[in-house]
Amino acid sequence: MSARDARLAFAIVAPPAAWTFQLLAVYLLVSLACAKHVVVPLGTQAAGAAAALVALAALATALGARDEGDGPRRFLSRAAALAAALFLGGIVLGSLPGVLVAGCA
């Protein structure tokens, strides 16, 4: 796999992976806090921030590659940019409950 294809693969795979990570991490952290009284300070916020950074990096990578390579690769980088923007939005939405809804301290 060439470096360019590796970047493209990162741009495609990273945003959904980051979004999934945030979802599961928050679910686990909140459950730990509410059911087992194990509180990880700023855990959900950290998970959200890390996921957002990864998605942002992927978005930048995809946008940077949108005019590179042959037809299918250009298509994939444009598609990856759209998906990255969507998942980035999803990660932002997913970090709101930590702000607006009380957890179990």
Binding site: L93, L96, P97, L100, V101, A102
Partner: peptide
Amino acid sequence: FFMLSLVVTA
């Protein structure tokens, strides 16, 4: 809409 729903949930 989502933010509003969170406020109501809270």
